[in-house]
Design a protein around this nucleic acid. Structure first.
Length: 592
RNA sequence: GCGCCCGUAGCUCAGCCGGAUAGAGCGUCGGACUUCUAAUCCGAGGGUCGCAGGUUCGAAUCCUGCCGGGCGCGCCA
């Protein structure tokens, strides 16, 4: 690393931390055995601008007093690599090293962030960590509209994908359409019954069928499309929809699937969730040569499991011995009736995903499916490359709806549900996206519908968006007043070239600049922990720092260096807020 | 009964791969607009981090047990 690069590195918090660790390794070679420690932002200004507990961590390994190590590290680093950016240091408490950064560090950090623009925080993953990842989420039977739970998984899944991609992973968003099996049969029969009713034939929706109004709408469109093509079939079967011939139900079912699927696409597009791949479960049973009576990907999967010796026959069914891999019971793949289970489809599906060259698979599921996890892990142990680590299952807890303070129960079959579109109508897509990633995926989420409809300033998304709009306004005023886009001192026209002279950096500017400098660390943290709520929380904090800064520091001032520096902070904040909101799928309005 | 998740301020929750005096929003109370957007800011009040043990220099964080709540435990998906 050249001296100049090394100097530039110090203007980012990650680089600052690395530099400290290199110096620490010179003092205590065992330090290199430890995972990289993070710089922390101290709770009080007396504790410095940034702080590190790294001496505490290494003290035990080195069998040395942590305060001694911290002192030696501080002396050595501040006199050497950190000389230009660190004003002084203190050792506090049990062995914290607190660094007091110079104004030059703040100017340099701001200059660097401006030069990076929208790339501030991008590609934070080391090259070796970057992977080709498939993220499967929302996946559902196409038997009815998406509900609020799906809004959560869609928002979280998409935010994770955006974060992954920004951090350096190669990401594919995939939707698995469960258009096969008994639920689809019920749906087909329900739709056929509604169709029959529209033609004046007595045929109730079968028991356990789908009663929602949307089935009526789909039936209307079916009639528009095919007229009375199935009149004879439904007349013959009436009044029992379950007596309809298979080929008729199949046709109606697939027609219904396409209608529901079209709605999914519209809903998800509105929610700004762009799926790259849609895979149909039914399609896994088509094509190729049959094995054990199954064609397509399913046949391939069965053949491979047989090759691996993982299948056995019992009670007239075909089983996978998942108990060999930690599941608490073996699982049926082909029923006594000869019909495949959902698990068999899933094996074929995941085998195919691996075949498509993904290094890592992530599935996001609702908590009501968590009992399925052990058999999925077992599947990955049974199939080449026999590595359950390749599959990561993120279990999202459920969403409770509160109405007038009481829980609202929903039933999918009866059609009494709050849909994603209902929610988007009520509070807007920005609020849905922001709210749904506001807490950890393993906490249940209570959504207060009364509050959601209120659309007031209680909604935290406005707080962050307002900070962005406010900055845009300030910068518009700045451009109007100074109006010289060719001025190299204008951070708007040449953000990377501004030096800010030796302008003094006040406490509000320091806080804002430090918050901005944290962004790459937040992105990395959110990616590694699969926690978009960390970015959500950070954006609130960054917006708060900006609002305080704005309150205390006039940007439009007579001193050109002060104005340039403050405008530079504004530009960097605007860019960072916009990027952070974009990563959550939320818009960044220029005025409000 | 077994498994997974949760239990932190009046409410909703962050923080949890051990670090300094546990944070935010909402609600409550009191302040701040002749100056770049008051959807903002400042201040006050509010806590046995469910309980009990254990590990540690140090525990909201790790381990064990218990209590309370959610979700699962099909040859459904």
């Amino acid at each position: 690393m050249s001296e100049r690069d090394e100097h530039e590195e110090l203007y980012g918090l990650a680089g600052l931390g690395r530099s400290l660790e290199r110096t620490l390794a010179e003092i205590c070679p065992v330090a290199s055995q430890l995972p990289p420690a993070e710089l922390t932002l101290p709770p009080k200004p007396e504790f410095g601008d940034v702080s590190t507990p790294v001496a505490l961590a290494v003290a035990r390994l080195a069998s040395r007093n942590p305060r001694e190590i911290a002192t030696e590290l501080g002396e050595r680093w501040c006199a050497g690599p950190g000389a230009a950016v660190c004003a002084r240091f203190e050792v506090a408490g049990p062995g914290f090293l607190n660094l007091f950064l110079s104004d030059e560090w703040y100017r340099g950090a701001t200059r660097q962030m401006l030069a990076l623009g929208g790339d501030h925080g991008r590609d934070v993953l080391a090259l070796a960590q970057r992977q080709k990842i498939n993220v499967e989420f929302v996946s559902v039977n196409p038997t009815g509209p998406l509900h609020v739970g799906h809004a959560r998984y869609a928002s979280m899944g998409d935010a994770l994908c955006r974060l992954f991609s920004f951090a350096g992973h190669d990401v594919t968003r995939e939707f698995y359409l469960n258009d096969f099996g008994s639920q689809m049969l019920k749906f087909g029969q329900s739709l056929a019954a509604r169709y029959a009713q529209r033609l004046g034939i007595e045929m109730p929706v079968p028991a356990d069928g789908y009663l929602g109004d949307y089935v009526l709408e789909v039936a209307d469109r079916l009639i528009d499309e095919v007229g009375d093509r199935y009149l004879m079939a439904v007349t013959a079967a009436a009044p029992d929809a379950t007596r309809l011939p298979d080929e008729v139900v199949d046709e109606i079912k697939m027609w219904g699937r396409d209608a529901i699927l079209a709605r999914f696409r519209v809903t998800l597009e509105r929610l700004r969730v762009p799926f790259d791949v849609w895979t149909s479960e039914a399609s896994l049973y088509a094509g190729g040569t049959a094995y054990r009576g199954f064609a397509g990907e399913v046949g391939k999967a069965l053949r491979e499991l047989d090759t691996e010796g993982e299948l056995f026959d019992s009670d007239g069914a075909v089983w996978l011995r998942t108990t060999d891999y930690g599941d608490d019971k073996d699982r049926v793949l082909i029923r006594q009736t000869g019909a495949p289970t959902y698990f068999l489809s899933d094996i074929a599906y995941h085998r195919d995903k691996m075949d498509r060259g993904f290094e890592h698979l992530i599935n996001i599921w609702g908590a009501d499916h968590h009992g399925y996890v052990p058999r999925m892990k077992a599947m990955f142990s049974a199939l080449p490359p026999h590595d359950p680590e390749r599959l990561e299952l993120i279990i999202g807890q459920l969403v409770n709806l509160l109405e007038s303070g009481a829980a609202r129960r929903m039933s999918k079959r009866s059609g009494d549900i709050v849909t994603v579109d209902d929610l988007s109508d009520a509070i807007g897509v920005d609020a849905v996206r922001f709210f749904m990633v506001g807490r950890s995926h393993d906490s249940t989420l209570d959504l207060d519908l009364d509050l959601a409809v209120e659309q007031s300033s209680k909604n935290p998304v406005y707080y962050v968006q307002y900070a962005h709009a406010r900055i845009c306004s300030v910068l518009r005023n700045l451009a109007d007043g100074q109006g010289d886009p060719g001025d190299p001192g204008d951070p708007l026209s040449a953000p990377g070239a501004v030096s800010f002279g030796d302008v003094e950096v006040g406490p509000f500017e320091r806080n804002l600049a430090r918050a901005l400098a944290r962004f790459p660390l937040v992105v990395l943290d959110a990616v590694e922990r699969r926690g978009p709520q960390r970015l959500h929380g950070y954006l609130g904090e960054l917006a708060a720092e900006f609002h305080v800064f704005y309150r205390n520091c006039r940007v439009l001032t007579d001193d050109p260096e002060v104005a340039a520096f403050r405008a530079g902070l504004c530009v960097a904040t605007r860019t960072t807020l916009a990027k952070g909101l974009e990563l959550l799928g939320v818009s960044a309005p220029e005025s409000m």
